[in-house]
Amino acid sequence: MKRALITGITGQDGLYLGELLTAEGYEVFGLVRGQNNPKIPLVREALPEATLLFGDLTDTSSLLRVLERSNPTEVYNLGAISFVAYSWENASITTDVTAKGALNLLEAIRLHAGNNSDGVRFYQASSSEMFGKAQEVPQRETTLLWPRSPYGVAKSFAHHMTINYRESYGMHASSGILFNHESPRRGPEFVTRKVSQAVARIALGRQDSIAMGNLDAKRDWGFAGDYVRAMWLMLQQPDADDYVVATGETHSIRDLLDVAFERIGIDDWSGYVRYDERYERPAEVDLLIGDASKARDKLGWQPTVGFRELVAMMVDADLDAERAS
């Protein structure tokens, strides 16, 4: 039986990936930071067969203990300070967890595996935010990285460190440069879930409006359940590599609002959306759209959920949650 260790198992990607790996017959271990983590009950409900281990990406000794206990054949590093807006307010901790955390885990794997470092396959969750001030459209694996947030900078460090360990120590270490991927499990601080949750509450008369920042920013949005399959496929390849994972379509925040409000029968949302400058980024990323040709050709991967279907799924889930509350 294959054994997989997932850092960041409490997030949307960790939950979907844990479900996929369990279905594929893996023994799944999840790294959890803090024994009083409020998301532990959620993980235990979604992944009852998973073994949760306590450790911290900022503490290499704890990572070595977790690796010894789980003895994984595959490690998926999804753990990070992942909310971009938070990274400006807490650039140092974002660096410690998102950047140095990846380095700590790579080094712990190298020490744990010894001369068989290629026997533990490693996945690094890289991000389209690394492209930032995009130097070409669409963005692909060879596009120059120009991050525009502390989060993007931290992810760029982790991305290059993954490449360095692959080239220096022969590790089977791959990075998935994932563009924005969402689901009903997305945290409410992220704009897609913020919108779907607010729209559900507006539909039920529990909220009057939603405060937004830049409505013209454009993103390439896909479904998280599709994207975790790409992660798994990367580690099934004979050779490690880096892959862009994206839909190849771009939509603005206005498009997001259009589809979300249409789902509850509102065609003109202008009276429900108010501008708040607090939600503007210090350095905006205007347009992200990915070219996933390499993932399609080499991994046989392609998205199955379209933009409108994704937004509808999220609004419907939040309507159900609101009605049940």
Results as ranks from 00 to 15, higher is better:
Y272N: 03
I266M: 00
S183A: 06
A295G: 00
V84C: 05
P147D: 14
G119D: 13
L78G: 10
N115V: 12
S156Y: 02
L5H: 05
N115Q: 13
I253A: 00
D268N: 15
E68M: 02
N115Y: 13
R229T: 09
F261H: 07
V305H: 03
A324M: 10
A85G: 15
P184Y: 05
A324Q: 12
Y279W: 14
I163L: 15
G306T: 10
L215Q: 08
W269I: 09
A102W: 01
A99S: 13
P238W: 09
T250Y: 09
K133I: 10
S92T: 08
F223G: 02
V66A: 14
N90M: 11
E136Y: 04
V305E: 04
P150C: 05
L215Y: 01
R206F: 03
G225Q: 12
V75E: 01
S196H: 02
E68I: 01
Y169M: 07
D286L: 14
S82C: 06
E45R: 11
L233E: 06
F83L: 15
Y16L: 11
A91P: 14
G14I: 06
L78A: 07
A230Y: 04
S61R: 14
H181A: 10
K218W: 00
T95M: 08
M171K: 07
E68C: 01
A317F: 07
D268Q: 11
E249H: 11
R185S: 05
M212E: 01
R69Y: 06
A91N: 08
D241F: 07
R69S: 13
H181K: 05
V97A: 03
S252F: 00
A198E: 00
N36W: 05
R274G: 09
S252H: 04
Q197R: 14
K133G: 12
M313A: 05
T162S: 10
G55R: 04
L106I: 04
A99F: 04
V84E: 10
S325T: 11
M231V: 05
D258M: 12
D258G: 13
S209R: 13
F83T: 10
G18R: 07
M231A: 12
R148Y: 02
M231E: 08
Y86I: 05
